[in-house]
């Protein structure tokens, strides 16, 4: 029990004194996850809108594939990206393995299906009369699509936040492709795993508290967004 209390005491010490190693790890974690999220949203939102609003052959197969990839195990994604980026792989010449870029790619792959599927779900939930209403007001097909996406904004935001929750807490894929190099590719989750193995609990506990705080903030944000969306839809 003593080592646990000591661990917490020292963890709070690290946080209060803004330990540079701790800060570096937090900043890298947020940079990697936020960049991955931006890229995944830039591709996932248009794809979700396309699948939600257009009719095309094998649409059902595409939706099923996206939904299946939502549950993609991070270690499998990590393995696949490792094989692609390793020296003998097709993209080995780029020298990305064991860099933050490789970690961004891994997290993008994990976030992309979540954002696409939840954006698709949010967009198909928009009342079809919205499309007709904007068309009757003189909207071009692109403006009609924009109107539908705007109506789905709360669902889309929830999807993006859910994806953030997944990637910030993910450890398997970034450990494989990032290599957990101190001061370069070491992020919160991989540090917790490593320091726990080493028996250095203070840094692991400090990062665990930060991760939990982020998770709490995320859930609060989701709650606020969902309430705002429901207030609009339910009134």
């Amino acid at each position: 029990m003593g080592y646990l209390l000591k661990g917490f005491r020292e963890a709070f010490g690290l946080m209060l004194h803004l330990n540079p190693e701790l800060l570096g790890i937090i900043v890298l974690s947020l940079t990697v996850s936020c960049t991955a999220l931006l890229i995944a949203t830039a591709f996932g939102l248009p794809l979700g809108a396309l699948v939600g609003l257009k009719r095309f052959p094998a649409k059902g197969v595409v939706i099923s594939a996206i939904n299946s990839f939502m549950g993609l195990p991070p270690v499998v994604a990590g393995l696949f990206i490792y094989l692609m980026l390793s020296r003998s792989g097709p993209f080995g010449f780029m020298g990305l393995l064991y860099t933050p870029s490789a970690m961004i790619i891994a997290q993008t792959v994990l976030a992309f299906p979540i954002i696409t599927a939840l954006c698709h779900s949010a967009i198909v939930s928009v009342d079809p009369v919205i499309r007709q209403a904007s068309a009757t007001l003189g909207a071009t097909p692109l403006q009609v699509t924009a109107a539908v996406i705007r109506e789905a904004r709360y669902g889309i935001m929830s999807g993006v936040m859910a994806a953030f929750g997944r990637v910030i807490a993910e450890v398997g894929a970034i450990l494989i492709v990032g290599g957990n190099i101190a001061g370069y590719t070491r992020v919160m989750t991989t540090t917790i795993a490593l320091e726990t193995d080493k028996g250095n609990f203070e840094l692991a506990i400090a990062l665990g508290i930060v991760l939990l705080a982020l998770s709490l903030l995320l859930n609060l944000g989701l709650h606020v967004i969902q309430r705002k969306g429901m207030r609009g839809a339910g009134g």
Binding site: I130, Q132, S134, A139, Q143, A147, R150
Partner: peptide
Amino acid sequence: LPKVGVFNTTTFKNILYGLKI
């Protein structure tokens, strides 16, 4: 339309839509 299809925003912004586009 019989079911108007209002946007999930203020009454004012609903009116602005057709003018904005």
